[in-house]
Amino acid sequence: MSGGLPRRIIKETQRLQAEPVPGIVAIPDDSNARYFHVDVAGPKESPYEGGVFKLELFLPEEYPMSAPKVRFMTKIYHPNIDKLGRICLDILKDKWSPALQIRTVLLSIQALLSAPNPDDPLANDVAEQWKVNEAQAIEIAKQWTKRYAPSQPMPS
């Protein structure tokens, strides 16, 4: 790793490898230690169960004073995630605090998959569908999971 990498990032990365979050794999890129390849397994009893979702996570220059930038690469049907994979999560925006970590962010994203919040939507059409007919929305989410996020054996 490059000498310029802040100790905080080194420590967090080491801990993520040593004690990974269950259901999440985050591996720093070979050429850029601030860029992480992330796999998140769809939580049990959610419409995303059985799927594995690819995300990218980047630690900006000001990290940890500024929040990490996170985006879904795998298509997902979720009221708080838009077409471009951007995530509507308060701790990634104004509720960010330097006391939070990559680990906290990943856990929060996992929680968001378990409990979609159509009242604070990013993808308006999806949120609308979620409110009007939740059963149907969940069905679509399941289909998308099968189609776009087929499960592979998780590397661990």
Binding site: E62, M65, S66, S97, P98, A99, L100
Partner: peptide, 24 residues
């Protein structure tokens, strides 16, 4: 760290609402 925290926040227009960096 304080310096960087304040810098980032002030650049976002935060002043009277500047909070501690501690957890919660």
């Amino acid at each position: 760290c304080w310096q960087m925290h304040f810098q980032v926040q002030i650049q976002n227009g935060v002043s009277t609402e500047l909070e501690c960096m501690g957890k919660d």
